[in-house]
């Protein structure tokens, strides 16, 4: 219980910690999801980081989000995966749902 309370506090904190690269913040948050008992003090060690300086040619202002390539997606959406996704559809799904 303590863990869950800490976790949500950490996400908001991580997001708004200027100087922490978003990728790094995400990594920390996701890792905590997997390993419940991670030492928070470790996080503070790499608090100060060098700002990203690499020249980036990438267009950082696009509409279409990132997708894995088609092959990965094809492997991901097997018949079972589509079956699992059926709870999101109003269809002949396994569990009958009343809510609109």
């Amino acid at each position: 219980l303590r863990g869950s309370a800490q976790r949500k506090w950490n996400l908001s904190k991580l997001i708004y910690t200027e100087g922490l690269e978003p990728g790094e913040a995400l990594r920390k948050w996701k890792q905590e999801e997997e390993e419940e008992e991670e030492n928070i003090e470790d996080d503070e060690d790499d608090f100060f980081q060098k700002k990203e300086t690499a020249a980036s040619n990438a267009d950082l202002d696009t509409f279409v989000p990132f997708f894995d390539d088609l092959q990965t997606l094809k492997e991901k959406f097997t018949t079972e995966a589509i079956e699992a996704l059926k709870s999101r559809f109003f269809a002949v799904s396994k569990k009958p749902s009343g809510e609109a």
Binding site: V64, P65, R88
Partner: peptide, 20 residues
């Protein structure tokens, strides 16, 4: 095929609104 799979991916990765 690509757009269809991406739609499924977007649905699986979203809740009320899509990422875009």
């Amino acid at each position: 095929v690509k757009v269809a799979y991406e739609l499924l991916e977007e649905i699986s990765k979203s809740a009320v609104v899509g990422r875009n």
